[in-house]
Simulated scan of single mutants.
Amino acid sequence: MIDLKLPSKQELKRYNTLFSVLTKYGFEDVMANDQLKKLIPKSYLKKHPETQKLLSFSKFERIRMVLEELGPTYVKLGQIFSNREDMLPPKLIKELEKLQNNVPSLKDFNVEKTIETELNISISDYFQSVNPQPLAAASLAQVHQAKLLNGDDVVLKIQRPNVDDVIASDIEIMYHIAKTLDKYSPQAKAFQPLSIVSAFEKI
């Protein structure tokens, strides 16, 4: 029976981001597979003007940069695979290890507004100050210093915006791609892509 399920609005948005970032970092060859093309609207396949510039980086550097730019789901995936020396080449492992400690912080992230919205409070009622620059950033959250009204120093761990919806859409997309690779790519099938995505979803 033909699966006629249409992607959700959130999934379409993430497809757009996924293939735009792959193109930006010079991975148009990944999208050259005829079967994968069926998953991608034609508008997503336009070349990004920065592609040539980014080709100066090694393939493994660009893989790491793609994961960073795609956000929390893919950073977490890279972190997991950084421990798989049995599956991946040493140079790629070295790049993925950078995702353990060097996750980029969010750009244009209004920390105070996020705190006020999530906790339904006014910052001035509880804090003397909140540092907008993070102490550290991880795949799902980042950490900020703050000072309470009584002078106590505290650390706030703030979840990345809309992370639940993004992860759910990303995993759905991963399943679509894994099914395609499992069916049409003998090389990829050897790595059991569906099992990988299933294990990752549980994590």
Score class of each variant (00 low, 15 high):
residue 1 M to Y: 09
residue 4 L to T: 08
residue 5 K to L: 06
residue 7 P to A: 13
residue 10 Q to N: 12
residue 12 L to I: 08
residue 15 Y to Q: 03
residue 20 S to M: 10
residue 24 K to N: 05
residue 27 F to G: 03
residue 28 E to W: 00
residue 29 D to Y: 07
residue 32 A to H: 09
residue 32 A to Y: 04
residue 33 N to F: 07
residue 36 L to D: 02
residue 38 K to W: 04
residue 40 I to M: 11
residue 40 I to D: 06
residue 44 Y to E: 08
residue 44 Y to M: 14
residue 44 Y to R: 06
residue 48 H to K: 07
residue 50 E to S: 09
residue 51 T to S: 10
residue 52 Q to I: 14
residue 55 L to A: 12
residue 56 S to Q: 14
residue 56 S to T: 14
residue 57 F to H: 14
residue 58 S to Q: 10
residue 60 F to A: 15
residue 63 I to M: 06
residue 63 I to K: 03
residue 64 R to K: 15
residue 64 R to L: 04
residue 65 M to K: 09
residue 70 L to A: 01
residue 70 L to P: 01
residue 73 T to M: 01
residue 73 T to H: 03
residue 74 Y to H: 12
residue 76 K to C: 02
residue 76 K to H: 03
residue 76 K to E: 07
residue 80 I to P: 02
residue 82 S to T: 05
residue 85 E to I: 12
residue 85 E to W: 12
residue 88 L to M: 15
residue 89 P to Q: 09
residue 89 P to M: 10
residue 92 L to F: 14
residue 93 I to A: 08
residue 93 I to W: 09
residue 93 I to G: 07
residue 94 K to E: 15
residue 96 L to N: 11
residue 98 K to G: 13
residue 99 L to Y: 03
residue 101 N to F: 14
residue 101 N to I: 12
residue 103 V to Y: 02
residue 106 L to A: 07
residue 107 K to D: 13
residue 110 N to S: 13
residue 112 E to R: 05
residue 113 K to S: 14
residue 113 K to W: 01
residue 114 T to D: 04
residue 116 E to D: 15
residue 117 T to Y: 06
residue 118 E to I: 07
residue 122 S to T: 05
residue 126 Y to I: 06
residue 131 N to M: 01
residue 131 N to P: 01
residue 135 L to W: 01
residue 136 A to P: 04
residue 139 S to E: 01
residue 142 Q to V: 03
residue 142 Q to D: 02
residue 143 V to A: 00
residue 144 H to Y: 09
residue 145 Q to K: 11
residue 145 Q to L: 07
residue 148 L to G: 06
residue 152 D to Y: 07
residue 153 D to A: 15
residue 153 D to V: 06
residue 153 D to F: 02
residue 155 V to A: 08
residue 156 L to F: 04
residue 158 I to K: 00
residue 158 I to G: 01
residue 159 Q to P: 05
residue 164 D to M: 03
residue 166 V to I: 10
residue 168 A to C: 10
residue 170 D to A: 08
residue 171 I to A: 15
residue 175 Y to E: 13
residue 176 H to N: 07
residue 178 A to S: 12
residue 183 K to T: 09
residue 183 K to D: 06
residue 185 S to E: 13
residue 186 P to F: 13
residue 187 Q to M: 13
residue 187 Q to C: 01
residue 188 A to R: 03
residue 193 P to I: 04
residue 193 P to L: 10
residue 196 I to V: 15
residue 197 V to N: 08
residue 198 S to I: 09
residue 201 E to R: 14
residue 202 K to R: 08
